[in-house]
Nucleic acid binder design. Structure first.
Lengths: 178, 178
DNA sequence: TATTGTTATACTCTATAACTATA
DNA sequence: TATAGTTATAGAGTATAACAATA
């Protein structure tokens, strides 16, 4: 544990301007106009803080990639296919924790845009070997340049060591729950 | 910047087992059975790493709170009402970045369960002053105990200083994108 | 029997527009 | 004219069940 406990929650739980027993029906504006809203110990919950950061980062990523029409999940799929040419949909599904069923539409779209291809596997006729097209690799390089621009913006408040540390800490959290 | 660059991306872009020019139609199993799938530089993107951590944390939170039927957003709403008795729905909406329209159903549910109440505001008859009921405060204390249990699990891979550091780094990232 | 890709479907979250009543 | 709460609705993203083909 670390800094959060029932005791500290109690302490942080400030009773504002004498408001008491609202359940009994007392009304009245409990706060003066313009007062800032306190999030309290919510900002001490890793889940909340991670969520807010994730939303801010994705918002910037989506805006950055909007001109090339690539969503976060599509970008991750393209990278994993590029790094593992010939992998199957089931393997891709497991690697990215995307349900097999939900990959179908994504791959249809990537094929439609001539970025990726399903190739019949000769060894196992149930599965498809996934590849980027030559065009897909070319486009992925362009996507990278934009994604890097986003990455710089997303981590501009951190120095290189802090950025690395953040990735490490988050990785440990995810693995420990995995 | 910090450790990620077009150059490093190039370097990491390994061409596995001689696979080349998949766009031209070459098939064949590009990977031996049982090979691990490489995520490559995906794990160097703060967006991807934050997203995976957030999913793992929320999964544990949702499972932990399932017996008391509280979702992450509901928990955050209860905390902010508790910390700011009498605040309006619009204020709550802004504080948590939840759209006004999407708060309506949530508050209906919390009222139905006798955890929170909308009280007519005398000063501005358009708005509602939000309060926890006495029961709501009692229940929130129970929710806290479970949430703390979750928090311990989610950050068990970190020491207290690392946990604090993680919250700080994420806060800076979110604020810098704000 | 188990697995692969697929379809159909549902549920949650989130986003927008429009309405009403107030300010 | 703008804001608060509400309704209705649409779009993502994600989840499950079931099926045909194949292992």
């Amino acid at each position: 544990m670390s800094g959060i406990s029932p005791r500290s929650v109690q302490r942080q739980h400030a009773r504002r301007n004498g408001e008491e027993g609202a359940g009994s029906g007392r009304a009245g504006p409990a706060r003066a106009r313009g007062d800032r809203i306190a999030l309290g110990y919510l900002t001490d919950h890793v889940g909340y803080v991670v969520r807010r950061a994730q939303l801010a980062i994705f918002k910037d990523f989506i805006e950055t990639m909007e001109p090339v029409a690539i969503r976060p999940a599509q970008y991750s799929v393209l990278i994993v296919i590029d790094q593992n040419p010939g992998l199957t949909q089931a393997e891709l599904s497991r690697a990215l924790a995307i349900k097999r069923a939900n990959l179908v539409g994504m791959l249809n779209e990537l094929e439609r845009r001539k970025l990726a291809r399903r190739v019949a596997s000769p060894s196992d006729r149930r599965s498809h070997a996934l590849h980027l097209t030559a065009n897909g690799r070319r486009m992925l390089a362009r996507f990278h340049r934009r994604a890097l621009e986003h990455e710089r913006r997303a981590t501009r408040a951190l120095d290189p060591g802090e950025r690395r540390l953040l990735l490490d800490l988050l990785g440990r959290v995810a693995r420990s729950l995995g």
